[in-house]
Design a protein around this nucleic acid. Structure first.
Lengths: 331, 331
DNA sequence: ATGAAAGCGCTAACAA
DNA sequence: TTGTTAGCGCTTTCAT
């Protein structure tokens, strides 16, 4: 025998199907006596309502399920973001479908489509692709972007104050006497990455130091840093615009035994940054806050809010720990 | 106007509803001409099949969705586990519902029930509660446990070789001359935690050093370590049985400036362990492998495999980095 | 307060 | 190859 239906419950309780439906859905218009009998039948049959069937017939077509697309659920920034979103959802009795995108544009599109097809009430996306035009067909599904803003499609977006944060980092280095401050960054097609570069340029007036873009991952950042420090005229300080790049740079400085002489400020905090020698100065983002705000915005939209797309900026915080307070040596 | 249905598509394409169904489901028995007309109609109407309705009628009641319950999606071990599971699922066209449990037993039960109610094809659970008896009612939903084995309910379980791994760690310390090796551990109601303690005892014959259990989180571990080292007869080496505890211990050693004199081996690796001073020796678990294996086992069950519950052990690896190779000083 | 009937969007079983 | 009919498990609407 298969799973019991409302009909089975009705039969064993000796009531009509509709009465069972009323009890299950907590409608108040049922006599306590009948309600008790229904609940007993539910118990003995181990009845569980079929959410899909209920959804099919309901007017209020909410699945109470949202989709979250992140760069990689195993990286610390995404993890904290994810957790914060999950908490907000949990508080509303909403479940979360999760997907990691890596750098795969196609996977972003496919997962977004697939999640929507599952009738998720809304989507939170940290876009990895360089074009989100495909989302314009997603009518009826609220979308909020986090961490990176979209291209070719407009919706609520929650991101850090990248320009200001990067500028603060670079000015901090300049204040410690540095004149040749290198920029190490990643994919410049991503608006967020461009903003951080802009902050760097802004802070240095128009006298930038050496610049390296398109660094993918720790290893690439380590190699690039080594190359930079072996140049004839090496930088005395580094600004790394992303956490994996920061870690790569730390490894490079260690290998060259320059970690006590070359200053470093990274964008985005990471676990144990405070336990390294020297501890790493960063401009911290607040992924938990970003997640909370993004989830809040999404649920507002789901609940019918219909204003124009908002861009919400979350402030960053400079955390001086040592690596950024190394002074420039004479040159 | 609302979302188009198969009927709408049928009407605009001038065919029967069933023909549309055939095209949408890729059944081969449709003339190219009709199929093309259907696809055109799908395109112009922006039709998307309603998964819920389809599920309701199908014989093969697969949602192609699994549920994953983890301790905390924002901790690195869980994150890597999660990603590995997601990759296996993705390869099979399956989506993942995720939930974090913290230390909340009730949340475990509630989420497991809720996910099952959503007709997830199976569940992967890193149990936080001390009793999984409630799962015995979950007939028809395959379950696999990861990281920690269940109590009161039996199912496939994928865990590290905790006893052996802990013993290796402790013997490694003993081999460096240590005789007073402390154990710092967490919740002893969790079988996994007990196993690690057992490995510790096993390695020391019956001459254990100081033992502290029930440490919850980094801060507690830090305090406990400080207290331990201030005793009259302090340990010369520490075995920390979990990654947050290891980090707490590192902080304590730093604060007391004993990080170069007291040896430390931790159970479970963590990011940047190799960049600390001294780099932290660990018995590494392999969360990615655990995740892959667990997902594999779950999908086997979903595909109908019906053997007895299996306990699958994943080996650990000692990674000597420095902190575990500090020799005992005369005493 | 309770129930009967209709139908949500789709697929199974069968017929043409 | 195509179409017709019934019905998945539930909620709606309308009657009682």
């Amino acid at each position: 025998m298969s799973r019991p239906t409302m009909n089975d419950v009705a039969r064993t309780a000796g009531v009509s199907l509709k009465t069972v439906s009323r009890v299950v859905n907590g409608e108040p218009t049922v006599t306590p006596d009948l309600a008790a009998r229904v609940r007993a039948a539910v118990e003995t049959l181990d009845y569980r309502p079929h959410l899909g069937a209920s959804l099919l017939r309901r007017n209020d077509r909410r699945t109470r399920m949202i989709g979250v697309l992140l760069e990689d659920v195993s990286n610390p920034f995404s993890g904290v973001l994810h957790r914060a979103i999950e908490e907000e959802a949990h508080a509303r009795g909403v479940h979360v479908l999760t997907g990691s995108l890596g750098e795969d544009e196609r996977r972003e599109r496919e997962l977004a489509r697939a999640f929507r097809q599952r009738q998720t009430d809304g989507l939170i996306i940290a876009p990895t692709g360089s074009d989100q035009t495909y989302l314009s067909r997603f009518t009826g599904t609220p979308i909020v972007f986090v961490d990176r803003q979209p291209s070719g499609f407009l919706a609520d977006t929650v991101v850090s104050t990248n320009v200001a944060g990067a500028a603060v980092a670079v000015r901090h280095l300049a204040a410690h006497g540095h004149r040749r401050i290198a920029f190490l960054g990643d994919n410049q097609r991503i608006p967020t990455a461009r903003e951080r570069f802009r902050g760097y340029l802004q802070a240095l007036g128009h006298r930038p130091g050496p610049v390296v873009h398109e660094l993918r991952g720790e290893a690439a950042a380590e190699r690039a840093t080594i190359a930079l420090l072996r140049r004839a005229d090496p930088p005395t300080a580094l600004f790394t615009s992303q956490n994996l790049i920061t870690i790569g740079a730390v490894r490079a400085l260690r290998r060259l035994d320059r970690h006590r002489s070359v200053a470093l400020v990274g964008f985005d905090d990471f676990p144990l940054a405070d336990l390294l020698e020297p501890a790493v100065t960063v401009v911290a983002q607040h992924p938990a806050r970003i997640g909370r705000v993004a989830a809040g915005a999404l649920f507002e939209r789901i609940d019918g809010h219909d204003g124009p797309p908002r861009e919400i900026r979350v402030a960053t915080t400079l955390i001086a720990r040592g690596s950024g307070e190394i002074f420039a040596t004479g040159n």
